[in-house]
């Protein structure tokens, strides 16, 4: 892995974000290189999800700079924050995928349409092309026989795998996972984690907010521990889990 600037897929610099008076992100710096898997861990309310939501355009930051796949989403120059225009934002949205904690599949669409709809109507692919992409992904997820089912007829684990397929369909440069297994029981969790593990082997760039500590240790290249709106500690996954340096990190990991 080289350190060249071109290899950086996500760059968040000095990100600040508050809701009302509550400071949720208090100067976050995060860089993710191509092919890197970064796990974000930390207690609830520590700002992990908000950070992800800011990176995925679902929340606006108050201060800082975000660059995704070379495009500047927002920048703060001499104290003034400005966001890119709508066209660039749309461009940026095609560069990442987001997997939600509670899937957010479209219940009135079949599995197949959940995956192909954006390909056809946003990315202007032909129906045949979209279906080829869809079938390949469903095959990979072990869900090819579910293509014509509706989400309500799938288990939570299957739904989450469909939503991963949906996020992968547009061939994004980076995928964000917001606690992808928190809504699943341990047995279903396994299937979803296996899929993410496979993606890591294929060198998919991923940022994963998770509470699955052993998964983070085994799959991530790097772990970021967040609390109180700041990054308390970060480092190579195995080192951080087995030998945390900060007192706060030690306390948190002791709970697992």
């Amino acid at each position: 892995m080289s350190d060249s600037k071109n290899d950086i897929v996500l760059e968040m610099t000095d990100i600040h974000k508050s809701f009302e008076k509550l400071e949720v992100l208090n100067g976050i710096n995060l860089q993710v290189r191509k092919g890197e898997v970064v796990a974000i861990i930390g207690p609830s309310g520590g700002g992990k999800s908000t950070l992800l939501r800011c990176a995925t355009t679902l929340e606006r930051v108050d201060y800082g700079k975000i660059v995704i796949g070379g495009d500047v989403l927002c920048d703060t120059i001499s104290g003034r924050l400005s966001y890119c225009d709508k066209k660039t934002e749309k461009e940026i949205r095609s560069k990442f995928g987001l997997v939600f904690q509670n899937f957010n599949l479209f219940p009135h669409f079949s599995v197949k349409r959940n995956i192909t709809e954006a390909l056809i109507h946003v990315h202007k692919k032909s129906k045949a092309e979209a279906e080829t992409i869809c079938n390949n992904l469903l095959m990979k997820m072990g869900l090819i026989e579910k293509a014509d089912e509706y989400p309500c007829n799938l288990s939570g684990g299957q739904q989450q795998r469909v939503s991963i397929a949906r996020a992968l369909a547009t061939n994004p440069e980076i995928i964000f996972f917001d606690e992808p297994t928190s809504a699943l029981d341990p047995e279903l969790t396994k299937g979803v984690l296996t899929v993410i593990k496979d993606l890591a082997k294929e060198k998919m760039t991923m940022v994963i907010v998770t509470h699955e500590m052993s998964f983070a240790r085994d799959v991530a290249d790097r772990i970021v521990f967040m609390d109180g709106g700041v990054i308390v500690e970060e480092g190579p996954a195995y080192d951080l889990v087995t030998n945390p340096q900060q007192q706060r990190t030690k306390e948190f990991l002791a709970g697992y």
Partner: peptide, 8 residues
């Protein structure tokens, strides 16, 4: 939100 991030 799902629709937004998919680019709709």
């Amino acid at each position: 939100e799902a629709a937004t991030v998919l680019g709709f």
